[in-house]
Amino acid sequence: IDVRFTVNGLDVTVRVRTEEIAERVKELAKNGVDWREIQRIAEELNK
């Protein structure tokens, strides 16, 4: 599942395995978490 969001004007796409992880990623993006941090968290959750 590809999750797309915009952080500080940057369009970011993170690929995740499940809808649940996708929701977590969207939540982080909404809360203004840095995209590199979101990427790292997504990689952890995908394991």
Rank of each mutant, 00 (worst) to 15 (best):
G9Q: 04
E37Y: 05
K47I: 14
R36F: 12
I1P: 02
T13N: 08
A22V: 04
R40I: 09
K47Y: 12
Q39C: 14
L28I: 03
V3N: 01
L10Y: 14
T6H: 12
T6C: 11
L45Y: 06
R24P: 00
A29D: 03
A22R: 04
K30N: 12
N31T: 10
I1Y: 13
D11T: 15
G32T: 04
G9D: 06
K26C: 08
T18Q: 02
V14Y: 06
F5V: 12
E20Q: 13
R17G: 07
A42Y: 03
E20L: 09
G9E: 05
E20K: 11
L10C: 06
E37A: 07
R15N: 14
D2E: 15
D34C: 09
V7T: 07
V25W: 01
T6I: 11
G32C: 05
R40K: 12
T13C: 09
D11A: 13
Q39N: 07
V25R: 00
T6M: 11
R15A: 07
T18N: 14
V25M: 06
R36D: 14
V33C: 07
N46A: 04
R40F: 07
T13P: 01
I1F: 15
R17N: 14
E43I: 10
R36K: 14
A22Y: 05
I38C: 02
E19S: 12
K47N: 15
T18V: 02
E20T: 08
E23F: 10
K30F: 10
I38P: 00
D34E: 11
E27M: 10
V33N: 05
L28N: 01
V16W: 01
A22L: 05
E37G: 03
D2S: 10
A42K: 01
K30D: 10
D11E: 15
D34N: 10
V7L: 10
E23D: 12
A42W: 03
R4P: 06
E44I: 10
E37M: 07
D2C: 10
D2G: 05
V33E: 06
V25I: 15
N8D: 13
N8A: 09
R4C: 10
I38E: 00
T13K: 07
E37N: 05
E19A: 12
D11C: 11
I1G: 04
R4M: 14
I21E: 03
R36Y: 12
D34V: 06
W35C: 05
D34P: 14
R36E: 14
V16I: 02
E23K: 13
A29H: 14
G9R: 03
D34M: 07
R24T: 14
R24E: 05
T6Q: 12
A29K: 05
D2H: 09
N46R: 01
T13M: 10
F5W: 10
N31H: 11
D34T: 10
V7D: 05
V33Q: 05
I21A: 06
D34K: 07
E19W: 13
Q39G: 06
R36I: 14
R15W: 15
V16S: 02
R4A: 10
I41Q: 06
R17K: 14
V16L: 03
I21K: 01
R4W: 13
K26R: 15
R40N: 08
A42M: 07
A22Q: 04
V14S: 01
F5N: 01
Q39F: 10
T18W: 02
N46P: 02
R24S: 06
R24C: 13
E43K: 09
V25G: 00
I38M: 02
G32I: 06
A22D: 00
I21T: 03
F5A: 02
F5G: 01
R40E: 08
T6E: 10
Q39A: 10
A22I: 02
E23G: 07
I21M: 05
E43A: 11
V16D: 00
I41T: 05
D34A: 11
R17C: 08
E44F: 09
I41K: 04
V16Q: 00
V14Q: 02
N46Q: 02
E44R: 06
D11M: 15
V14C: 04
V33M: 11
V25Q: 00
E19Y: 13
I21W: 02
R36M: 14
K26I: 14
N46C: 03
G32W: 03
I41C: 05
E20Y: 12
E19N: 11
K26N: 07
V12T: 04
R24D: 02
T13S: 13
A29T: 04
N8F: 04
R15G: 04
Q39W: 08
E37L: 07
V12W: 08
V12R: 07
D2Y: 14
R24A: 13
A22M: 06
I1H: 08
I21H: 07
A42E: 01
I21Y: 03
T6W: 10
V12F: 15
Q39T: 11
V3Q: 01
V7W: 10
I1M: 09
R4L: 11
E27F: 09
L10W: 10
L10M: 15
V14N: 00
I41A: 05
W35L: 15
R24G: 02
I38W: 02
